[in-house]
Design a binder for these strands. Sequence first.
DNA 1: TTTCCTGGAGAACGTTCGTTCTCTAGGCTA
DNA 2: TAGCCTAGAGAACGAACGTTCTCCAGGAAA
Lengths: 195, 195
Amino acid sequence: MHQDEPRAEAQDEPRTRILDAADKLFYDRGIQSVGMDELRTAAGVSLKRLYGCFPSKNDLVAAYLDRRDTRWRTALTAYVTQHAATLEDCPSAVFDWLHAWFATPDFRGCAFINSFGELGATSQAVTSAARRHKEALLDYLTELARDLGVREPALLGGQLALLVNGAITTAAISGSPDAARDAGAAARALVAAGR
Amino acid sequence: MHQDEPRAEAQDEPRTRILDAADKLFYDRGIQSVGMDELRTAAGVSLKRLYGCFPSKNDLVAAYLDRRDTRWRTALTAYVTQHAATLEDCPSAVFDWLHAWFATPDFRGCAFINSFGELGATSQAVTSAARRHKEALLDYLTELARDLGVREPALLGGQLALLVNGAITTAAISGSPDAARDAGAAARALVAAGR
DNA sequence: TTTCCTGGAGAACGTTCGTTCTCTAGGCTA
DNA sequence: TAGCCTAGAGAACGAACGTTCTCCAGGAAA
């Protein structure tokens, strides 16, 4: 007799396996480059079950982006709250986390920017997912700016978001994580100037 | 008898029409979403001539990116040299030009970032085209920083590039050109701090 | 007029994709 | 054991893609 997993986990284990495979493949190679058949193979799941969990590829893409949004922002905020000793250290911690991400071997830019560039013109769902993600990032950074007691928190928050997005795309295209350092320095200068 | 165009122009008129159609369609909807047949129709050219000018879609994509690179950077530098009264005005002029671009009705982000997100993982040609484009932009901004007599021109140039790329992606996803204003203000603050 | 060459229109080919359908094996209930 | 339901494996389908091929009209050359 084999060991049984807990009920709830076993229940959506296929769904999780599919999402794991989608996350890896879609992020690595882009959405249109990955077929449902390859996805099925990677997830180790039958086509019937794949379409049972996600009625269409669009649904799977939406779920992929949704899960990636929460995971990415959770990882960022967790790192910042854990590694920033003081409030003043928070902006630097953001870019430290980015630097570590950029140095990851399979880093390939922002999934939302990539998806938007690929499908934004044809898929309203992708566009709004990207918009929600970037708005949530902006909200977080604006809140951070507000906590810093800066003169115009909305302005600084927006500028930090520009630096984050610029660093991500630059690091992806250049293939080097250095952009995070320049961005961090710029962020510190902007915070200092905004007081 | 109809009027004859000049020889050289008539010679590659089909090529130009193809590139014009490719520029519009690829930029508007992404590369993989546009088929060669639709391109042929938009260019008003036979399939035979299309494949005579560009032996494969990859070649057309490369030519599309190449022409867009030179046009984009030419337009930027022309605007800056024309609208910046003093050297100090140059950074602001860069972001003024971006703002005007963002407000264009068919603005849809950076063609190179979009192409990279879509095909960077599968096409070495697209990756290196994007890399060359961003490096050329970085060189221009670094030169600009050097002319401003700043302490670390390479650092400031890189930071201006981050702001430019961040503003482009943010404007594209948010659908608003406001990012250019925040980026311009950040650029001025960074220039002032770098002296 | 006949022949030859160019180029256009679009049919055709082979592949790939998203999605559905068929067939079958195996486990549960009676 | 007999009947039934589930789910897996993968064939099948219709559409779309990149690319090539066929056919034919029309102009230049002799």
